[in-house]
């Protein structure tokens, strides 16, 4: 990722070299105030990328979350907790998958219902160094 000479460049020109696949936002009941976006990011560039944030007009708050658990299922009182993280790092060539059973991009305090399959939700990913990735995520039911 080359730093532009002039700092007045548009943010979109600082697009990170990533490949996005399997992007969607989970459809949730109309009363739900939380949903999450899922996708796989692959760093196709030569430098490490650090995802620092997610935002969307569909939610007041976007958070990078991981799933954490404690105890063995079946033989201990195990609980699963979500834990906010400040960033996710992607080495060159590394892939990172956000999925319902693990790390996810949480959309909290939804501004409107996300119950209609077929809607499209704009999602913005911010990377360290000012790079920005703008995506349009289809809303669909969890598979």
């Amino acid at each position: 990722m080359k730093m532009p000479a002039a700092s007045a460049r548009m943010a979109t020109q600082l697009a990170p070299s990533v490949q996005v696949s399997g992007l969607y936002v989970a459809a949730v009941p109309s009363v739900a105030t939380e949903s999450a976006a899922y996708l796989t990011l692959k760093n196709t560039g030569k430098t490490a990328l650090i995802l620092t944030g997610v935002s969307s007009p569909a939610a007041r708050v976007g958070m990078l979350m991981t799933m954490k658990r404690m105890g063995a299922p079946g033989n201990a009182l195990d609980m699963t907790a979500m834990k906010m993280v400040t960033d996710f790092a992607l080495r060159p060539g590394q892939s990172l998958t956000f999925a319902p059973s693990g790390a996810h991009l949480m959309l909290s305090r939804l501004t409107g219902p996300l119950s209609v399959v077929g809607q499209t939700v704009p999602i913005t990913l911010n990377f360290r160094g000012g790079a920005v990735l703008r995506l349009a995520a289809p809303v669909r039911r969890l598979q």
Binding site: P29, A32, T33, E34, T80, P100, L142
Partner: peptide
């Protein structure tokens, strides 16, 4: 719980 964004819907 209904405010659960991932595991409960899943």
């Amino acid at each position: 719980f209904t405010h659960c964004p991932t595991i409960c819907p899943l």
